[in-house]
Measured scan of single mutants.
Amino acid sequence: MQRVNMIMAESPGLITICLLGYLLSAECTVFLDHENANKILNRPKRYNSGKLEEFVQGNLERECMEEKCSFEEAREVFENTERTTEFWKQYVDGDQCESNPCLNGGSCKDDINSYECWCPFGFEGKNCELDVTCNIKNGRCEQFCKNSADNKVVCSCTEGYRLAENQKSCEPAVPFPCGRVSVSQTSKLTRAETVFPDVDYVNSTEAETILDNITQSTQSFNDFTRVVGGEDAKPGQFPWQVVLNGKVDAFCGGSIVNEKWIVTAAHCVETGVKITVVAGEHNIEETEHTEQKRNVIRIIPHHNYNAAINKYNHDIALLELDEPLVLNSYVTPICIADKEYTNIFLKFGSGYVSGWGRVFHKGRSALVLQYLRVPLVDRATCLRSTKFTIYNNMFCAGFHEGGRDSCQGDSGGPHVTEVEGTSFLTGIISWGEECAMKGKYGIYTKVSRYVNWIKEKTKLT
């Protein structure tokens, strides 16, 4: 034993070699072989497995989906700052455009905790909710729209109204504003409101030439003092309507412009014939205590009207009353817009006519005020429907199939267009061939041609 100890002390290297040989010859039971080890760690190889990531292109799944990435790591994937920024906006807080917040056709661009709407022409605001041009839906104005110097929408209202708090709607500024039905039992019968379409306001006024200088022999019209197929109006439903009495009662109609003036057809009036105007009328054979009678003290036909040349060209006249009318729910003026808007309103496509005229061709006159909704007829169809001249200051309205029309005794009465609950004068009943005849239409004086003249002559002093 002493000898062994001496050998170990003198030859430590020998001992180490012996131990190493023993270990190498022993069977290893701690580690699995290569094949079995792979069965336990069965993990798919990654895209760049075996390579240094710093030297390969980034992978979106590896960089940002398996674990949260930084902007720089995302930049490695896209290799483009702009594309990385677009991805980053949604990656950080989701897609803010998912709810489609942009209105009126706006395009949404996502941002971090926010979004941006790219608005089409005519709109602005956070969600493109603000109209900035009158060309689109009248700028959301209830009545009139004008573009300011910086191309912003400025709404306005006709006389007797003021802008509401929203700067879009119009509200009454006087007790009985024009064009409004205020009798409670008839307010439910107000005709369907007309909503502004998209309009090209630059070209809204037709490029028409008034044929002022045409000389033409007097034409022989049949029954051209021209509501057939209409309905009984309720008291106060058309408070701007008046009836004219002269040699015979209810020979023509008219509309209240203001307390002192009536507008009617020029062919209705004769110099030297006494005319009485009755406002607030409903049943011409009954006294309903809503009527107001006034005498006409002055007749002003349009300066281009000449019955000797043509009885229905420039067929418009103004009547001055001896005493002002007292405005109330049964006696209310009709609204008159400017030339541009009167023309736009007419193009809405349908209007209402009213009167006490004959209820059928050569038949009896109506006792109760009649009204009828009539569609506008395109000019080409209008011209083809008659052998008589249709001037540019006239328009056609009615039904091709016949059966409904204005008729004798309705002449001078109103053709009105309702705009968001307020009625505007767009025409004056003038003439036609018979009444409600198939293929024939009622012919009306186009008020847009005469609004400046009306307003100039009827100013209240």
Rank of each mutant, 00 (worst) to 15 (best):
Q2M: 13
V4T: 12
I7Y: 10
M8R: 15
T16K: 08
L19S: 02
G21I: 15
Y22K: 02
L24S: 04
S25T: 13
E35L: 06
N38H: 10
K39T: 09
L41S: 12
P44M: 10
K45I: 11
S49F: 08
G50F: 09
K51L: 07
E53L: 05
E53Y: 09
V56E: 15
G58Q: 05
E61K: 06
E66P: 06
E73R: 06
E79S: 14
T81V: 12
R83C: 04
K89L: 07
N100Y: 08
L103R: 09
D111R: 04
G122S: 04
E129H: 05
L130T: 14
Q143W: 00
Q143P: 00
A149H: 11
C157M: 00
E159P: 05
Y161P: 01
L163E: 02
A164G: 10
F176Y: 13
S184M: 05
K188C: 05
R191C: 05
T194S: 13
T194P: 09
D198W: 13
V199D: 14
D212N: 10
Q219N: 08
N222W: 07
F224Y: 14
V227Q: 06
E231S: 06
Q237I: 08
Q241F: 15
L244P: 00
V248H: 13
D249K: 14
C252L: 01
C252H: 02
G253F: 04
V257N: 00
V257K: 01
N258S: 06
E259G: 03
V263K: 00
K274H: 12
V278G: 03
G280L: 02
G280E: 01
H282V: 11
H282I: 08
E285M: 08
E286T: 08
H289G: 13
R294D: 01
N295G: 08
V296I: 06
N304S: 13
Y305G: 02
I309N: 13
L318S: 00
P324K: 06
L325H: 00
T332D: 01
P333I: 00
E340V: 13
L346E: 04
S350P: 11
Y352Q: 03
H361Q: 05
L367A: 14
V368C: 05
V368H: 12
V368G: 10
Y371N: 09
L376Y: 06
R379A: 07
T386C: 08
M394L: 08
C396H: 02
C407S: 04
Q408T: 15
G413I: 09
V416T: 10
E418R: 09
G427I: 00
G427Y: 01
W431E: 08
W431S: 10
K440I: 03
K440F: 04
K446R: 09
R449W: 09
T461W: 07
